[in-house]
Amino acid sequence: MSGIYDILSIRNPGIKELFRLRVGRRRARMPKGQCVVRGRQIVQAISEHFKFDKVFTHESRDAASFYNADKVLRTPKAVLQHVLFGPKAPSQTLDDGDLVIGQIKQPEATEEFEPSPRCLLAVDKIKHPENMGLLLSTAVALKFDGVVFSTECVDPFCYKVLEASQAVAWTLPYRSFATPQQLVELCDRHQLLLCAAHKDGKALSEVSQLSSSRRGFCLVVGNEADGIQKELLSRCTQVALPMSELVESLNAGVAGGILLHALSCTWVQQRK
């Protein structure tokens, strides 16, 4: 059973640390290797498989005893609101479940995708948490083998991305790449066709003809404003979605999600 304690003051060291983790950028969190997760539903979903270091909640002792955590800290709503929003009160009415905060060790990057992957997602400089969350959710839903992040992406383990994805990507193996060459080498090592979402790319029907010598594929989705960095784009098979002339483009999360599904279907059909 978890240890249950009461914290009443906003000046408590544990509350101050939680606030720093919540507002801090990746550099502030990485030395501690900790993530902050907000919301009862997400906390409970993750805790089915992983134990939290701490869970902060305003709930009764009976309710608090069900969390999978080393410590459950009962804290007034006003203190939890301060952690989440600072001195600024939220404009919308919060559900009681929103004021449950988990503090947990961040999953470590994998040294290698095992067994050898067939389907990977590569995310290049995506900045908006909503897009990152949508891409990760789609990759999990389609049973992708992992995700590779460029070092300039939004932090995939910041609380905004975790909320946007409902933390479904928590168990998705991940790695990072600092240069395009590192991603190219990873794909060559696993015999993956490196594809890039691009408006001037090939139709999906043509991709299967290029992939006969490859075991699988890796789809790169680029930055919302600038797309995929040129050096990486030049090394990719560029893939486009057929769209009406009435629509200039789709955002990165939507377009990437459609292509993840389309490429998966194309690959399955080819292997039959």
Rank of each mutant, 00 (worst) to 15 (best):
E152K: 12
V247A: 06
D6F: 12
S116C: 10
L84H: 07
G97T: 09
S264I: 01
D188H: 15
I104Y: 06
R26C: 04
Q44W: 08
K272M: 12
A167V: 05
A64P: 00
P180A: 04
I10C: 06
R271G: 01
I10A: 10
S9T: 15
F85I: 10
A78R: 13
F113S: 06
R118L: 11
N12Y: 03
Y159I: 04
D70W: 07
R189A: 15
E112T: 14
S234G: 00
K77E: 15
V123C: 06
R25C: 02
Q229W: 08
G201C: 13
K54S: 11
Q81G: 02
A78T: 09
Q182Y: 07
E248S: 10
V100C: 05
L172R: 13
K16C: 13
D62K: 08
G216A: 10
L233Q: 03
K51A: 09
F66R: 14
C218E: 07
C35D: 05
F66Q: 11
C153Y: 04
A63W: 06
V37R: 00
Q41L: 12
L183H: 07
P13E: 05
Q229F: 04
A122F: 07
V23R: 13
E114K: 14
L246Q: 14
L186P: 11
F149R: 00
V43C: 08
K272R: 14
Q269V: 03
V148F: 05
F56K: 00
R189P: 06
G97E: 05
L134S: 11
D95K: 11
C153N: 09
S60P: 02
S9M: 07
C195G: 04
H58T: 06
S9H: 11
M132S: 10
A28V: 13
A28M: 15
S234A: 15
L18P: 03
W267Q: 14
Q44T: 12
M243A: 12
D200S: 15
V247M: 05
T266K: 10
K143R: 12
E108W: 03
Q81H: 08
K199V: 14
F85D: 08
D62V: 04
R40N: 02
R38N: 11
K199A: 12
F52D: 03
R29P: 05
L94S: 04
T138G: 06
T171Y: 10
A262G: 03
A164P: 03
E59G: 05
L260M: 15
C153R: 02
K105P: 01
A69R: 01
